[in-house]
Design a protein around this nucleic acid. Sequence first.
DNA 1: ACTAAAGCCTAGTAATGCAATAGGAAATAG
DNA 2: CTATTTCCTATTGCATTACTAGGCTTTAGT
Lengths: 142, 142
Amino acid sequence: MLVSTKGRYALRVMVDLAEHQAAGRIPLKEIAARQGISEKYLENILATLVRANMLSGMRGKGGGYVLTRPPEQYTVGEILRLTEGSLAPVACLDGDCKGCSRSDECPTLDVWKNLDKLINDYLDGVTLDTLVAPNEGYDYVI
Amino acid sequence: MLVSTKGRYALRVMVDLAEHQAAGRIPLKEIAARQGISEKYLENILATLVRANMLSGMRGKGGGYVLTRPPEQYTVGEILRLTEGSLAPVACLDGDCKGCSRSDECPTLDVWKNLDKLINDYLDGVTLDTLVAPNEGYDYVI
DNA sequence: ACTAAAGCCTAGTAATGCAATAGGAAATAG
DNA sequence: CTATTTCCTATTGCATTACTAGGCTTTAGT
């Protein structure tokens, strides 16, 4: 599985926050309820996003989470790479595995490289704003 | 990780067999030595390929493995789907998970579907013969 | 027939990573 | 001062992956 629940949840949460941008800071409790995700598990995920400055978190009464940039400035690729650690389709291409000893002669390496590029290019081409449902995020009007 | 060692090894082995096609049946021992894979582990992988009729195995002296079709009739996609079980990038798209309860409203589902198609289409477009090193498989000449 | 070479089959195991939980400390608004 | 809310560190249960073990069956050659 290329993308685990952590990455999937992260993406859904980011879309959720984009849709409810106008409401200001949203507490974790609210997101968890809306998305049907355990509050405790969601804490982990949001902490990762905050540490990377993709979200701003604020504690205390009236606190909560908010996007740090406009939705069109987030790509799905960066969100997933952050939360998953890597989107490499095979271990051969994963950072610390500095290429196996056979990489010089490996006839399959190009397949993995092409696949890796395909995946990353596609996901880097999808921005958060394109995932926000039309006419949502405006529920504060009326 | 989309593709584990099982799938990676399987692909390398299939290429190996394509390259040594002319030599007739190749015993597991030989493949394992050439590819640097444990014989016992390789047994598992080859058994899977044989059961799916991608390879023919024959026991006894002079036995070994051989491709059942010409290399250009294998796609990387089918080899990997067989050995990995599935190439779905997320659990949401995996067979038995008959779509989560939120699939109707899920804003991210299209991303996963597009990604899934991208991956499978690419891998189904690569055939085994394109991975065989040029001028290999002809080592029996001279 | 016997033997060596090979594949086939069923388990088992160690290690890893995923998904989720637990409990409390620190900050903030009213 | 208190209720609310994020932040932080660990731990647990579970599933999967990667690999190993041991024995059975088939085949070719002598």
